[in-house]
Simulated assay, not measured.
Amino acid sequence: MTEPLQLPQKPCALRVVPQPADANVYGDVFGGWIMSQVDMAGSVPACRRANGRVVTVAVNSFVFKQPVFVGDLLSFYADIVKTGNTSVTVSVEVYAQRMRYAAEVVKVTDALLTYVATDDNRRPRALPVID
């Protein structure tokens, strides 16, 4: 028997509970809604690293592993995995706490997104140098 899954012991970028408007009539949350939340969560460390504005330029991969239901508590964990001159690539993992089963935690999504730092004119700019 496998051990029950636990939430990662690291900072969470975003936590949200999907509502009925985010789902179909059966209570299954729309994949597009989850994708938009993943994009927001991924932008958190990207904005920090860029010290300002970023734009999403690529969704490198996106895998739905389990369904998400209205009422699940979703936790989004985002980590920088690569930086370039102007770009930041972020890995996002999403876990659901099934609120109807207090102890159940399942990993629902893995994604990899790339952001580019932009200036006030929305043109690519170099990432700041880290001291």
Score class of each variant (00 low, 15 high):
82 K>A: 10
103 A>V: 04
91 S>E: 09
29 V>I: 06
33 W>Y: 04
121 N>I: 15
53 R>N: 11
58 A>E: 04
108 V>R: 13
40 M>K: 08
102 A>Q: 08
29 V>S: 03
58 A>N: 12
14 L>K: 01
63 V>W: 14
37 Q>S: 03
85 N>R: 00
124 P>T: 15
69 F>D: 04
129 V>R: 11
81 V>D: 07
21 A>Q: 12
34 I>Q: 06
75 S>D: 10
108 V>W: 11
66 Q>E: 12
86 T>Q: 14
62 F>S: 05
46 A>N: 12
5 L>H: 05
44 V>A: 06
88 V>W: 04
123 R>M: 12
121 N>E: 05
122 R>L: 03
92 V>P: 07
31 G>N: 07
95 Y>L: 13
37 Q>Y: 01
4 P>Q: 04
77 Y>V: 11
81 V>L: 05
96 A>E: 07
27 G>D: 13
2 T>W: 14
101 Y>P: 06
83 T>L: 01
24 N>I: 07
82 K>D: 11
105 V>A: 14
7 L>A: 10
125 R>N: 07
63 V>K: 13
88 V>E: 03
90 V>H: 14
44 V>T: 05
116 V>N: 06
104 E>N: 09
18 P>I: 03
98 R>M: 11
8 P>A: 05
98 R>Y: 05
64 F>V: 06
73 L>C: 01
98 R>K: 13
19 Q>S: 02
44 V>S: 02
124 P>A: 09
38 V>W: 00
10 K>W: 13
71 G>K: 00
104 E>I: 09
64 F>H: 00
111 A>S: 06
63 V>S: 15
121 N>L: 10
127 L>S: 00
116 V>L: 02
90 V>I: 15
73 L>Q: 04
56 T>Y: 07
115 Y>A: 12
63 V>T: 09
32 G>E: 03
21 A>G: 11
105 V>Q: 07
4 P>T: 11
73 L>P: 15
106 V>H: 14
68 V>W: 06
84 G>Y: 00
86 T>W: 01
113 L>G: 07
21 A>N: 06
118 T>M: 09
45 P>N: 15
93 E>H: 07
64 F>P: 02
85 N>E: 01
61 S>F: 04
7 L>Y: 05
11 P>D: 04
120 D>E: 09
117 A>R: 02
55 V>H: 03
102 A>T: 09
73 L>W: 12
55 V>T: 01
33 W>A: 02
55 V>L: 06
49 R>W: 14
54 V>Y: 11
107 K>E: 11
23 A>E: 09
86 T>S: 01
130 I>L: 13
79 D>L: 11
